[in-house]
Nucleic acid binder design. Structure first.
Lengths: 337, 337
DNA sequence: TTGACCGGTGCCTGCGTATTCACTCAACTT
DNA sequence: AAGTTGAGTGAATACGCAGGCACCGGTCAA
């Protein structure tokens, strides 16, 4: 059996209160007592038990990330940023993976009710209005990442604007028939990006053509996969007439799209979305989302709220940045990559 | 203030014991009492509090992953597998990120002492013998992923063999001067892969040339980055004589290497390591590690041990698989990608 | 000398739950 | 009829720790 605070107290000849103080740097403890306690603790391999501390202090020092898909570039980067901040602040990190098979709302509420963490980071969680309203009642610090709601702190990127910029850059190059390589439309970012795409169309007085919004067939990860991108691009390239350029809903899909172009030997300019690290090395033009920064900042924001529950709700919206590389420079020519 | 078990008990006209039983499906509770309790709980938004449950039951139902680098393809895939298993079993997931700035051993022990989780998954944690010995004393379920030690359950891939196969395949193609695009040698997988590389050299009676083991200059993430791969490949391509082929220590580095070849216009066959999803779409030959499976299996293994602490220690070693794609087919020609 | 003050310390209770044990009451046995 | 079961229940305690409060001894100023 692992040692408890009582064992340490007894062996060190002090009360448990003193042991507790030593481990919490709280109040004053004489150097002598402190050293003795630490020595005994070291000897017996003691350290306060997280759960007991949590219960007694009503603090878990834990932030929980609630997220639907874990194996995903966007999340991985956000996670990196979150962790950067968390280790600065000495907080624990838990991850709750929403299962797509069960009711999302129910799962989210269940997590909040258990009160495992002091603060929650909802990453890419999209709910409808009534659900958000219910969540407010829990009165728990929640920060949204990649989503936006007036009742919660949020950190997001303007997806419509990103798509708008991407599409616009292609129209400006003189392409009229610009396809959008899409993904599952149940994904909110996709819906927003389609909005941005349409907005650009409108600005250039080009009628919206439903047939130019294409997605793949495999809908694993909502269609944000290389495979789905490959499939979609094959469809695009076999259209008649072939679209002149393509805006992809994500870099990952763009990778598959590039492969499809190689395999078929037909090339059109494409632009991705995200600016994952690979994009630079693939010469992929894209829309940059500061994913890591978003994770970092959202975490900071969340911790701020945990420490000050009454502060005003803040909405942080990053502007997506257009990054031009070689994948949009070519024109009917083979990609030099 | 959130409701407690007492509030529910009082309002439902039963004792707290009964409420507890309802939420734990333990023993027998009359249907009538059960329904009443659930109704009241629903009404008051009650759910047992994780920390109190944990303290009282001495079970946290939590698995903790201990890992040095979070933003990393290998880890992301492993994590996906872990999560797949965990959600099947209804376990919580925590992540502890080892900081490179502090003493690893100390951090690991600290984590174990707190007893936050019931089982630990050490991913890519490499310690020396005396450290592993110390960890045994904690007598806590630990499963190693991407590492191997006789005292712990482990799930790993034979890195030496993987590198051996990669190098061998290049030698068999007739190349003699095969460079190894390496990374930080403090990384154990790197050391093992160098061993495999040397082993292949030996088999083909080619003397080992230290100068052919090249790494980049940026050592962020131990050198497992696109950038480091790019830098290293530039070095390789400017050597005189230029190596005839190259074995890369990871696919990510290989991506950078491919870019370097494009930028310089000099191409040599290369082979990567990992088989990340992208590799297929970049035509990158590589050594496949079943990362997701490893995560899944390791988790299963860990949970087995949590339920049966006395079972025999098991070492699972996956055999890496050689995947040939276009990046090794070319010969002094431009990559068709 | 007295009283205020302060660094240190221990006792005790509370945190919200699981669990043991004894108990009740009705159905069932012989 | 008395004894035997067993499902269902509640009181009490344990879990390991934090924190409030009281207390103790010494210092310093009045």
């Amino acid at each position: 059996m692992p040692a408890t605070i009582y064992d340490i107290a007894k062996k060190a000849g002090v009360s448990i209160a003193t042991v507790s103080r030593v481990f919490n740097n709280s109040a004053k403890v004489s150097d002598k007592a402190k050293k003795k306690v630490l020595a005994v603790a070291e000897e017996m391999g003691y350290h306060p038990q997280a759960f007991a501390q949590g219960l007694a202090s009503r603090k878990s020092n834990t932030v929980m990330i609630v997220v639907p898909v874990i194996s995903n570039y966007f999340f991985m980067e956000v996670l990196g940023g979150v962790q950067d901040k968390l280790s600065q602040m000495n907080y624990e990190l838990s991850i709750f993976n929403i299962s797509p098979n069960k009711d999302i709302q129910e799962q989210v509420e269940h997590v909040l009710k258990r009160r495992w963490a002091e603060g929650y980071l909802f990453v890419s969680i999209h709910l409808d209005e009534s659900c958000w309203a219910k969540l407010q009642k829990y009165n728990v610090p929640i920060t949204l990442v990649d989503e936006h709601h007036e009742a919660f702190d949020s950190v997001s990127v303007d997806n419509a604007q990103g798509a708008y910029r991407a599409a616009k850059s292609l129209f400006e190059e003189g392409y009229d028939r610009v396809a959008m390589l899409s993904a599952l439309e149940s994904s909110k970012p996709i819906r927003d990006r389609i909005i941005g795409y349409k907005q650009a169309l409108k600005e250039f007085d080009i009628p919206f053509d439903e047939k130019l919004v294409i997605k793949g067939d495999t809908m694993y990860r909502d269609g944000f996969t290389e495979r789905a991108g490959y499939e979609a691009m094959i469809k695009i390239l076999t259209m008649d007439p072939t679209p002149e350029a393509c805006f992809c809903a994500s870099d990952i899909q763009a990778v598959g799209a590039l492969k499809a172009m190689q395999d078929t030997g037909k090339y059109i300019p494409i632009i991705g979305y995200d600016d994952i690290e690979l994009a630079e090395y693939m010469g992929l033009s894209t829309i940059r989302q500061p994913m890591r920064d978003m994770g970092f900042f959202a975490t900071q924001n969340l911790i701020d709220r945990m420490n000050n529950p009454d502060k005003a709700v803040s909405q942080t919206i990053y502007s997506p940045e257009l990054i031009i590389r070689s994948s949009t420079e070519l024109n009917g020519k083979k990609l030099d990559a």
